[in-house]
Design a protein around this nucleic acid. Structure first.
Lengths: 136, 136
DNA sequence: TCTTACGATGGACGGAGTCCAGGTCAAGAA
DNA sequence: TTCTTGACCTGGACTCCGTCCATCGTAAGA
């Protein structure tokens, strides 16, 4: 994730302590935090950071393609920094735990032309659901 | 959908005009209404019906397996009465239009055991995204 | 027809996210 | 180094979606 800061600087991002802290909080594998969780962790490093700034920064990271937005339930969106390796998500129906998973094949290939209704289909988001070992 | 009312009566549902109207509004193919849209249409037939009743009824239909809840964006959930034929969803990235689609093969089969992390995986929800003909 | 428990009502409430006016500061210029 | 300026941050108000609750109404069995 350290190269993320470099990439952002290269894209003309003004580097502020707030943005740095948000980027740092999102570092790691199998990270799927809500905006409020990001805000809580960011607050530990930078007590004055505001909720609005966290939302703005997450939104910018998403539109730059550096972070993926995931909605697994109808509740808060989650932010996944693992944007550069294509993957899908496996969610526990009970506790909500999320894992990144890598299905075989291309999910897009399973949608035949006659099922595309003239859409220019460009993406397939898959959510696998089931009970995790701890909840089973 | 007329047999839906029979099935519900068979399950001990008390048949009220409100429940009947909600079930009727949800009749048809490619129906993916939000709760507020259901409420708006129900209100045309039964002006006094309350928002809470619509939410309650939709929730009951979902837990009875008669209706599927779909969240395609982070916004309002949508309710899909086509619960008895397995299908996935195709969503326009621009205008949000939704179509039911039927991919070939079983999406669950694409997740190898080593990618299941011990979960008892029971379901795969796929959302295909792209531009619809009108938006392209 | 009577009874009663299940269902409906609507208003208050809570979580998630957006918006905005005003204050602050990163980074290039001198 | 200091200055300048426009991009950025802040906090609070606001909207949207959904839930909760006390009270009232009514479907359906006796």
């Amino acid at each position: 994730m350290s190269d993320l800061l470099e990439r952002l600087r290269g894209r003309g991002w003004r580097m502020t302590s707030q943005r740095r802290v948000v980027a740092e909080v999102l570092d790691g594998d199998h990270v799927h935090l809500t905006a409020d969780e990001v805000h809580a962790r960011a607050t530990q490093r930078l007590p004055e950071i505001s909720r609005a700034t966290v939302y703005n920064t997450l939104g910018e990271l998403v539109s730059l393609g550096e972070v993926i937005e995931v909605s697994t339930d109808g509740r808060a969106k989650r932010y996944d920094p693992n944007a550069h390796r294509p993957h899908q998500h496996l969610v526990c129906s009970d506790c909500g735990t999320i894992r990144d998973v890598h299905p075989t094949g291309d999910p897009l290939a399973d949608l035949p032309p006659k099922e595309r209704f003239g859409f220019a289909v460009s993406q397939a988001d898959v959510i696998y659901r089931g009970l995790c070992p701890a909840c089973a």
